[in-house]
């Protein structure tokens, strides 16, 4: 019996979402029973023993030359084999771009169902129940797992990483798994950073989003300046994405990204139901809009009624003065 966690790595380093998954695994292990085992798919050892500090008891190191980058088929084979080897009751995978791709493949290999993008897990009744948003957060469903293991992906920023146990090392074991790397598969040939290493919307602490109220693409400089002052990531409404002012990756909403930062600032966005669906679970929402009747004010904790071309520069100025 074990709780298995997939360690998401980027360039050999453990991503923060992995620590969140480990923190949750440790909490679940208290009721479901441990230990917490990590499966790390990599081409070379990246001192995985240090994962002990984040909550891992043991690390299964699935090594393959093809694992210098994310490999959908290979990682799925390794994780499914690891789940079987340790008799996992639950398999926890970060709901990142890679994790969302990986988890359904692992579930299909194991012949079980899964719950994606979970915002809470509960094992108090001795069985795992997952809570996850549907319709981009317009509702939440609670799911139980008739089959074992339960495969779940954890939405970034919803689970607390464990307080580091300084000096605790995890036992690292080489993990042998069968996988036919010669079978036809998708191979990552390159990775390009289009947003210059900025924090992704789904992982951002603060988001400043702009809408059609900005009137022209060049006025997004106002949004970018405010975002820079706040250390925030830039988001957008669909209206401005469809107009070609902003890239698709920045769209927040039911057909864009669902986000839950600690602070969401909506500038010149009316608050259509599809937009609200994607951001209403943010901890604190600020709306800046000249129309006092705009629906965005219904979900905003703090609203400023006014012309964004005056309010936003003044706000940027005030934030800069705080530093």
């Amino acid at each position: 019996m074990s709780i298995l966690v997939y360690a998401e790595l980027r360039d050999g380093a453990v991503r923060p979402v992995t620590r969140e998954a480990l923190g949750e695994a440790k909490r679940l292990a208290a009721t479901l029973g441990g230990p917490v085992t990590v499966v790390a798919c990599a081409a070379a050892d990246a001192s995985f023993a240090a994962l002990g500090e984040a909550g891992a008891d043991k690390v299964l190191f699935a090594q393959h030359a093809a694992f210098a980058r994310y490999d959908s088929a290979g990682h799925a084979a390794a994780v499914a084999a690891a789940a079987k080897a340790v008799g996992a009751k639950a398999v926890l995978i970060p709901a990142s771009a890679a994790g969302k791709d990986l988890a359904p493949r692992v579930a299909a290999l194991l012949g079980v169902g899964m719950a994606g993008d979970c915002t809470a897990l509960d094992a108090s009744g001795g069985k795992l129940v997952a809570t996850r948003p549907v319709m981009a957060g317009k509702a939440y469903e609670k799911l139980a797992f008739p089959l074992s293991p339960a495969v779940v992906t954890l939405r970034p920023k919803n689970f607390a990483a464990a307080a580091p146990e300084a000096g605790k090392a995890a036992a690292v074991e080489a993990f042998a798994f069968t996988w036919d790397a010669a079978a036809p598969r998708a191979v990552v040939t390159g990775v390009s950073g289009e947003s210059g290493g900025k924090v992704d919307l789904t992982e951002a602490e603060i988001i400043v989003s702009g809408g059609r109220g900005l009137k022209a693409p060049e006025h997004f400089a106002l949004i970018e300046n405010l975002a820079a002052a706040l250390g925030a990531t830039v988001g957008a409404s669909r209206a401005v994405v469809d107009a070609g002012w902003r890239p698709h990756g920045e769209q927040v909403g039911q057909t864009g990204k669902t986000v839950s930062p600690k602070l969401y600032v909506a500038v010149g966005i009316s608050g259509a139901i599809q937009h609200l669906a994607g951001m209403s679970s943010s901890r604190c929402i600020v709306a800046i809009n000249k129309d006092p009747e705009a629906p965005i004010f219904k979900v905003a904790d703090y609203g400023v009624v006014g012309d964004l071309f005056e309010v936003v520069p003044a706000l940027t100025d005030a934030i800069q003065k705080l530093h």
Binding site: K138, A139, P146, D301, Y302, G303
Partner: peptide, 21 residues
Amino acid sequence: VERLALELPPPRAAGRIVGEG
């Protein structure tokens, strides 16, 4: 997978307009 419940999110506490301009 078995769905036990479908629930609406808790309503957000009412916010306020802090001012104009």
